[in-house]
């Protein structure tokens, strides 16, 4: 474990709790893409299946349980408890367009042809694009509430910090994971446009408006 990865995980947990707290406190899923949350749930279920078979550390197990339960809880709040506030008309990104390519990529790029390795590769590729429905929804609604912007900033920062972690591990341990690194770079690039808007708008106290 290194500081970059720890900060990345903290940023990730922060994002998950910002979103959960926002929906719970405002009792509304307005502006939130339920489809992205479904994709994140699939990502965590596919990646953390080894939870019951291999013990890495208490930290690892606790975090996996936390991400799986928080993403399931978020999907539940959006599609069940606060379903009336879910903005389905603007949450229209076809998730098949990210599910199928991720599955294909997993069959091409994996570290071994075992079910767990295929599921892991699939989850890595899917996570890279899982935010697309949310970013698509922000462009469709033309804006994002401040709290949603903070959620996206924390979520985007998590994988950006992981890139620093991979650089650090490469130079200190010679650790290199090409699948995770390539997908992580793509994932972070997808947030760049948002990062720019966040820094120039939200941090100046203005609302995040995606210029129509």
């Amino acid at each position: 474990m290194n500081l970059f990865r720890l900060m990345g995980d903290v940023s990730h947990v922060l994002a998950v709790f910002i979103l959960l707290a926002k929906i719970w406190r405002t009792r509304s899923a307005a502006g939130i893409s339920g489809r992205s949350q479904i994709l994140f749930t699939i990502v965590y279920l596919a990646r953390y299946m080894d939870l019951f078979f291999s013990f890495i550390s208490l930290y690892n197990t606790v975090m996996k349980l936390l991400f799986i339960s928080a993403s399931c809880a978020t999907v539940y709040l959006i599609y069940f408890k606060f379903r009336a506030t879910y903005d389905g008309n603007h949450d229209t990104f076809r998730i098949e367009f990210v599910l199928v390519p991720s599955l294909l990529l997993a069959f091409i790029f994996h570290y071994s042809m075992s079910f767990f390795e295929l599921a892991w590769s699939f989850s890595i590729f899917l996570e890279a694009v899982a935010i697309l429905p949310q970013l698509f929804m922000v462009t469709k609604t033309g804006e994002a509430e401040n709290i949603t912007s903070h959620y996206l900033f924390a979520l985007g920062s998590y994988r950006a910090l992981y890139i620093l972690n991979w650089i650090y591990r490469y130079y200190t341990e010679g650790h290199f994971d090409p699948i995770a690194v390539c997908a992580g770079i793509v994932q972070t690039i997808l947030y760049c446009d948002f990062f720019y808007l966040y820094v120039t708008k939200v941090l100046q106290g203005r609302k995040l408006q995606v210029l129509p």
Binding site: S54, I56, Y111, D177
Partner: peptide, 10 residues
Amino acid sequence: GLSKKVKDEL
């Protein structure tokens, strides 16, 4: 490959 090495990252 990495499958031998333990996947210790989230």
